[in-house]
Nucleic acid binder design. Structure first.
Length: 470
RNA sequence: GGAGGCAUAGCCAAGUGGUAAGGCACAGGUCUGCAAAACCUUUAUCCCCGGUUCGAAUCCGGGUGCCUCCUCCA
């Protein structure tokens, strides 16, 4: 079997994936800072890396997936002050909100979701080690990383230090030896949430948490580190500096970064007022449509977002859903006959193509194309009435199998709780059938319209009328 | 100023050397009481100009336009 290729930000090349430990994948993905509800852009990494993780599992790897929660930082503290809530309260509230949004989007929980506030001792120990090795220094209650002590600084973002310094718009601080140095430990302002440390009361800087927590759960070197592409610099660059100056070997073998989601070709930002919250969007679209929409483009490319585009995705997904529903329906009356070898191979060829596309740096867009090709295949067979039971069931199973890799279940509309009961629907359909029998089409259409208003779509087939919820 | 990305049909989007996948929308046809679904058919010289090559959407050079990072940011 072929191997998985990953585009590695570190080398700027697509590389064959070779795990550090045979059969195992250890991955760390930067999680949210929990100070607000997530917007659609925040949802991309969880979805993208959920697919990566699912695909590795599908390919037989044992995956350990870690995604952190940044549950203490400036923005959370600010939110807490504004709302009168405690920092922990704010964090917990938005962790819960994140989990709900992301679960709806079909994202499985990571194996570990470490929180910064629960790893203060590890972080302090990490910083102490850095100081001991001369990679960090204390400056009146703060601790800074000494970037000059790490010769490879800039290797991930392909920046050279001189250029960075020249273009530095970083806040000038007399506490820093160098403008590029970044804070590892922040001394607390009076009244602020804080922890005791060898350098006085304070809290961790932003980057150090990922270094400390990834090391704790995945070891000094792990396979994959992921996140949004904006994290390349400075966040991931700084993580590398911290971890590698301490351990002397690579932090992660493959660095993966997903592209942005833009609105009208522009970055989503509060100042532009174009932020779209997942929570809000879910009121208008099934979460699976949002997920399908995201997987329609390659993860490294930017995606433009709009209502029209989401509707387009919904229609596309509907084609697969319809085919799978029709397939299930067809199987009820299909000829109970075994599949030929050739037919079985044909089914497997779709599976192989899907794997080939996914192997190519998780090209979900092309993988979805394979599903559409399956749709056509199955539809043609049904139209020609040559789809017998065993082969039909094989296709149905493959839709489920590949859908599971993408995290989307096909053919099942999300349950609408407020809709009419099955019994009501069947009664109306029966009534319509009677009307049609006596060629009272006015009455039949009236019933069809009524059902449609209730969100029920009906279709007349040679095997009788069937329906589904819109 | 430095680093990088993108430009493919009305829209979305793959394809990184062998002659343009797929989806949405639209139109025509078949089927249907009418629909729906489905099937069939039609729809692109791949931003521009040079170059390399037997052959380029794909590689190289030069433009043009858009986006991102270098500051918290997925």
């Amino acid at each position: 079997m072929s191997s998985i290729k990953i585009y590695n930000t570190l080398t700027r090349k697509k590389e064959e994936f070779v795990p550090l430990e045979a059969g195992k994948v250890k991955m760390y993905v930067c999680g949210p800072t929990v100070y607000n509800f997530i917007h659609i852009g925040n949802a991309r990494p969880p979805i993208v890396f959920d697919v990566v993780r699912r695909y590795f599992s599908y390919r037989g790897y044992e995956v350990t997936y870690v995604q952190n929660f940044t549950d203490v930082d400036d923005k959370i503290i600010k939110k807490a002050e504004e709302s009168g809530m405690g920092v922990e309260e704010v964090a917990n509230m938005f962790i819960a909100a994140f989990e709900e949004d992301v679960r709806a989007l079909g994202v499985k929980k990571a194996d570990v979701h470490p929180k910064v506030t629960e790893h203060i001792p590890e972080i302090i120990a990490f910083i102490e080690d850095l100081i001991a090795k001369g990679h960090a220094y204390v400056a009146s209650g703060d601790v800074y990383f000494r970037t000059a002590s790490f010769a490879e600084y800039g290797k991930l973002s392909y920046q050279n230090i001189e250029e960075l310094q020249a273009g530095a718009r970083i806040e000038v601080s007399d506490k820093k030896e160098n403008p590029l140095d970044f804070v590892l430990w922040k001394g607390a302002k009076p009244g602020e949430i804080c922890w005791e440390s060898p350098w006085g009361k304070g809290r961790p800087g932003w980057h150090i948490e990922c270094s400390a927590m990834s090391m704790k759960y995945l070891g000094e070197t792990f396979d994959i580190h992921g996140g949004g592409h904006d994290l390349i610099f400075p966040h991931h660059e700084n993580e590398i500096a911290q971890t590698e100056s301490l351990t002397g070997h690579p932090m992660a073998k493959y660095w993966m970064h997903n592209g942005y989601i833009n609105i009208e070709n522009e970055k989503m930002s509060k100042s532009l007022g174009n932020v779209i919250l997942v929570k809000k969007l879910r009121e208008n679209y099934p979460a699976r449509v949002i997920r399908f929409f995201m997987l329609g483009a390659h993860y490294r490319n930017p995606i433009n977002f709009s209502d029209a585009l989401l509707r387009q995705a919904a229609n596309a997904l509907e084609r697969i859903d319809t085919a799978v529903r029709n397939l299930k329906h067809h199987l009820d009356s299909a000829v109970d006959e075994a599949a030929t070898e050739e037919e079985k191979q044909r089914v497997d060829s779709f599976r192989q193509r899907f794997i080939e596309e996914m192997d190519n740096d998780f090209n979900t867009a092309d993988a979805i194309t394979v599903l559409f090709d399956m749709v056509r295949e199955v539809n043609q067979m049904m139209a020609a009435n040559v789809l017998r039971k065993e082969i039909g069931a094989a296709y149905l199973a493959l839709f489920a199998e590949l859908g599971d890799v993408l995290g989307i279940t096909f053919g099942e509309a999300e349950q609408n709780m407020s809709g009419p009961s099955d019994e009501e629907i069947n009664t109306l359909i029966e009534e319509r059938a009677q009307a049609r029998k006596v060629r009272n089409f006015a009455r039949a259409d009236e019933i069809r319209n009524r059902l449609q208003e209730m969100g029920i779509i009906i279709e007349d087939t040679p095997q009788g009328t069937r329906w589904h919820r819109k």
